[in-house]
Every structure is written in structure tokens, then in C-alpha cells.
Design a protein around this nucleic acid. Structure first.
Lengths: 342, 342
DNA sequence: CTGAAAGCGCTTACAG
DNA sequence: CTGAAAGCGCTTACAG
């Protein structure tokens, strides 16, 4: 509107704070304060500025603010998947924890790829984030180096760090895997198979727990483990069940590394007329919504994913504010949901 | 490192382009060019700059670049949900379409709330985005006003705009609802119920299609429609099935506005011993992964959600570049998947 | 409580 | 092909 830039200017054409100030008849500084720290401005001038903002439909330029103030109010979140309900729940928790704050949340989907994580981190570091929320404890050397040189506060989500200096919120994936295996052992199963996909950090740790429990019971048998690189899907669960039974027909229970695989395995049993749990016990991990409702309902581990996001964001915010957090390692635990399938 | 800022400076403490340039023994400008437009710089200087960048672990400041160049390279995406697999697929399509580009994708989750959409749009408009990807065609007056004054290119996803000036990528939700209802009618069903949740734009349009088909068959009956505000979940589908059968025991088929509801309805039938489709036909909408695998497999509408994201992002990119798109309205259609449940 | 000046870290014209 | 100057739109000290 009105007299904006003259001639060969590089101006964006949008309303600036200076124009708002001129319109309100105050200095740019005063307009800035009336917006950012209104309590420091007299009601009279504040009102004039507010009116000018509304009349001109002023939208602050975030880049200019970030540059001038040397702080971005950005929090970066890196998750390995958006199609996995576990991580969308984590994101919901983060969103809720930060809702009242002024932070802009930058979501990056690494697709379980180190290369993608490096790329996304590099791009997002350019936004000079106030903090970073990371999934998992294991990262590539390049990622670790980028994080170290950036000196940005980091909270790791999902699992618990061994080093107490590292901030982490989650639960022991290994112990959860062990607990589920012990449950099956206690039920009298002996030939318990482990079905894994994606080979991501959490799957590997759950497999560790499975192995520990089987070894402790003197029942370890590597042939009972079926692990693939492909992403977890219902279709893969159905397929892996077939492969497992073909190779290990004497197996009497299956621990699937997540519910998707377990759902697929159960559906496949239904199609083949295999009674679950009578002929074959099946359990999963995560307790997705369908697990409680399907028939047979799925025995699984309920994971506090929403709370992981919420508590991790809360912890990160505290650290950003310079507060000393009460704990650097927040164990949110897990719950074994014993249902019909095992 | 070395001699950074002196005294009371407001510097961020991070390595700047000027330091990289000094380290390489070139002007700041040349360093800038060596990074942004390397082909314009001699191999000798380019090499020196590249080495300096690596040695100092230089990370460009995005805010400064955005401010100086008056372009953000940001694309904002607003979706109503992240827990709904439909929208995470849309996001995956967008990500893939824009992967080779330099865009930063800002994801906003409006949670099916107009207020939240206004808030997110306001915040994200501060980043001066090059373009915006919106879900749906219906928005609050404030949102429409904000979009209009921003003059940022917009592509609407999911449904098709009636005005050809408005860029849209999707399919007719109304026609899809109609097609599914006709399918049930053709199968001989007469008392076909409609189960809806969330009351979002798409649910309402599918209901419109249902009503049109029922009216055309002379079988319309408002009591067959059960619509609630709550978000769609499997649990809600199970609950609504109970309510529907209590009120309309003569209903012989159910069209659920999405697969989540349909899954819940089917699971509930299994628990109650109601044979699907013999006693009651059930169909859904979206074709989620479980639908093809569950027993009975779910008759539903497969929606091109990944492609919607991909094509919408491709269209937006073309418009941002100033190209004239071949079409302003991209109809990606839908596919009725006739399976066991109806 | 209010404001003139300087500066954040980059890029855009413009010269050479 | 290279560079000195100015400017993007804000905020931070610093005065008054």
C-alpha cells in the first residue's frame, strides 16, 4: 500500500515494521516493543500500534527477527517415519507440550536412513534451532559431529541413554523385548520365534532382549530368528509368517517386533485356518489401536509414545531456558497387555 | 574459532560467511557465489572456499539468506491430522516430489480445527513461504483473508475446486461417496446406513454422495444416517455399529465414511457373531493397508493420496517458478475395491 | 516510557 | 571472473 519502496529497491513488497510505525506515528523501536513486549509501552502508543498492525495486516518477517535477535525459536524434530503411528503419537505429544510456547516445530522424516538424517540435519541446522529432538541413540559419525559442533541442546527419544550426560526420554527397548519373551516362556512356550523388520535400532534391541530371555531359559536357537531389512507392514507380517512356518514348523509362539507384523501374521493364520493362540501364539509390540479390537485381540507391549514426545519436549524446553532438569534420563516404562492372541 | 567478535557484539558466535571468506583469502561475495553459484567462480577460488567451508564446518544462516534474498525457499503444508494414514501418505508424496529441490517443507497439523489452522497459518506466513499446500477447499473467513493478502501461491489438496482459477489436486469426494452407495444398491441392499465421524469436509461430501444415490433410488431415509463429531477411530466404529443396530435393526448394509470406522464395525460384528457380509454388508473408504488383509477383507474406495501429494507439490512448484501449469484442476480419480465385506 | 543508531549475516545490483 | 557498498527487516544495547 501507500508509498512503499522507490525504484530499484530489493524490498519484498510486504508491509514492514517501519511502515506500521509510521502509520501509528511512533518510532520503529516502539512498534517493535509494542508487539514483542507490550507491557513496556504506554497504553496509548500500544493501542495506536495495535491498530496500525490490524489496519495494514502486518505480518512480521521471521527471518529478520531471527537474524536480529540471534535466536530462531525453532525446535527441530527428526523422526524415522511418519507412516508409523508410533512416531505420529510422539509428534502429537511434542506439539501439545510446546503448544503454549512460541516455538516453531520443524519436522524432519529421515525414513530410517542415515543419509537422509544427515541431509535433514544439515538443512535444519541452517535454521539455527534452539533445540533438537532426536529419535534413537544411534547416529552416524557425521550426524554426531554435526550435532557436536552445533552445540544445540539435544534430547533423544524412545530409548534410554547409557551415559547420564546425554538427555533421553523413553524406556528400555531391550527390557521390553525380554519381558515379552519371558511372558511367552511362562505360558509354557518353548519354540518361540522372533520376527523382525526394518532392522532399526529399536527392533535390534528388542531382539537382544528376546535372545537374552531365550538364552537364560536355555532355549536359544538362531534359526528361530527371522529378520529382514524391509519396512514393517501388515503384508510383510503375512509373508514372514509363511516363511517362518515353512522353515520352522515346530515353532509354537511368535514374538513380532511390532504390531503391524503381528497383525499380518494373525490375518495370515486366519486365512490358513491356524488357530491363534491354540496352535500358535502371536504377540506384537506397541499396542496400536487395532490390537485391542481385532479377533483374537493382540497380546502386545503398550508403549508410552505420546508421553515420550511430551516429556522430551518439556525437558528440552527446560534446558533451552537454562534450567537444570531434575533428571537427564526419564524412564517412562512399558506395559505388557496380555490379551487373547498369546 | 580464531578472532571472532570483539567485546559487546551481538554476534551469534557461529562461523559466518565473512570468516570463511577471510580464511579462503577472498571477498565475502566471492565466498557467497562459490557456495550458491559455483559455476561463476574460477576453479582455484572455488576450491579455496570449499576447503574453508569444510575446515571451519561452516553452516549458512538461513535467516540471513532469506532476508537478503527476499525469498525463503519454504513451502508450507497444512494437514488436518498426522495420525490419519491418508495425510501421512500425502506428505510422503509431497516430500518425494520436492526432494531434489532446495525447499524446506514446513508441516502444520491443524487437528481438524479452524482456530488451529488460523494460528498455524499466521505463524507460518511469517516465514514468507514461496507456496502453500492446503487440505480441502473449505476454510474460515480469516484463513481466506490471510491467504488473499499474502498473495502466496496455493494448491488445494484432496478435493476438486469448482472455480477453475483455484488450483486443486484430488478427486470428487462426493462422486466417490455416490459410487460406493450405488455399488451397495446394485448388490441388492435397500436399507443402507451411513456412518460418519469428525464431520470434516470430506466426510460431509461423501455423505452428500450417499444421499444423492439413495434419493435417486427412492430409498432415502434420514434415520439411516449416523454422524458424530468425534474423531474417527476403530473404537468409535465399534461403538457406532452398536448404536446403529439398536436404532435401525433392519439395516442391511453400512457405508462407513472411512476405513477406521469400518474396521471397528467389522470387529464388533465378529464379537457379536454377526456374519459379514451375509447378515450385514460393511464397506469403508480409503483402503488402508489392513483392509485388504483382514477377514473378511474390506470393500472400500482406494484413494490416490500419495499421488495427490506428489502432483500437488509438482503443480505448486511449477506455479512458483512462474510456469503456466497445463491444468489448474487435477482429477486423480478413485477406485472401488470390491472385496469380501460387501 | 520513547527513540536514533548500529548491527545481525547474508545477497543484490553495480563496477571493474 | 572478482569485489566494495548498500540493504533486506528486524532487535539490541544505549541514551534521554
Amino acid at each position: 500500500m501507500s508509498k512503499t519502496s522507490n525504484g530499484k529497491s530489493r524490498a519484498s513488497g510486504r508491509i514492514t515494521l517501519a511502515e506500521v510505525a509510521a502509520h501509528a506515528g511512533v518510532a520503529t523501536m516502539t512498534a517493535s516493543r509494542a508487539i514483542s513486549q507490550p507491557e513496556l509501552v504506554s497504553p496509548l502508543l500500544r493501542g495506536r500500534v495495535e491498530r496500525a498492525v490490524a489496519e495494514l495486516a502486518y505480518v512480521p518477517n521471521r527471518a529478520a527477527r531471527a537474524l536480529a535477535s540471534a535466536q530462531s525459536n525453532v525446535i527441530v524434530v527428526l523422526v524415522p517415519s511418519l507412516s508409523n503411528a508410533v512416531f505420529t503419537a510422539v509428534l502429537a505429544g511434542i506439539q501439545d507440550a510446546l503448544d503454549a510456547d512460541h516455538y516453531q516445530i520443524l519436522i524432519g522424516n529421515t525414513r530410517y536412513s542415515d543419509a537422509e538424517e544427515e541431509k535433514l540435519l544439515g538443512i535444519n541446522l541452517q535454521s539455527n534451532p534452539d533445540g533438537i529432538l532426536l529419535s534413537g541413540l544411534t547416529h552416524s559419525p557425521r550426524v554426531r559431529q554435526m550435532l557436536a559442533t552445533s552445540r544445540v541442546p539435544i534430547v533423544s527419544m524412545m530409548d534410554l541413554a547409557s551415559e547420564p550426560t546425554q538427555l533421553s526420554v523413553g524406556f528400555s527397548q531391550q527390557q521390553a523385548g525380554q519381558a515379552m519373551t519371558r511372558y511367552l516362556l511362562d505360558k509354557g512356550h518353548r519354540r518361540i520365534a522372533f520376527l523382525g523388520a526394518q532392522r532399526d535400532e529399536r527392533t535390534l534391541k528388542r531382539a537382544d532382549g528376546y535372545r537374552a530371555a531365550m538364552a537364560a531359559a536355555g532355549l536359544a536357537d538362531p534359526r528361530l530368528e527371522l529378520m529382514v531389512d524391509a519396512p514393517s507392514t501388515i503384508a510383510l507380517g503375512a509373508e514372514l509368517l509363511g516363511r517362518l512356518l515353512a522353515e520352522m514348523p515346530d515353532c509354537d509362539a511368535i514374538f513380532c517386533c511390532n504390531d503391524d507384523l503381528a497383525h499380518g501374521a494373525i490375518y495370515q493364520c486366519q486365512r490358513r485356518g491356524i488357530a491363534v493362540p491354540q496352535q500358535l501364539a502371536i504377540c506384537g509390540f506397541n499396542d496400536l489401536p487395532a490390537s485391542a479390537w481385532m479377533s483374537p485381540s493382540l497380546t502386545t507391549i503398550a508403549t508410552p509414545r505420546y508421553r515420550i514426545g511430551f516429556e522430551a519436549a518439556t525437558l528440552l524446553r527446560a534446558v533451552i531456558r537454562g534450567e537444570t532438569p531434575p533428571a537427564t534420563r526419564i524412564d517412562l516404562g512399558f506395559t505388557l497387555m496380555a490379551r487373547e492372541s498369546a
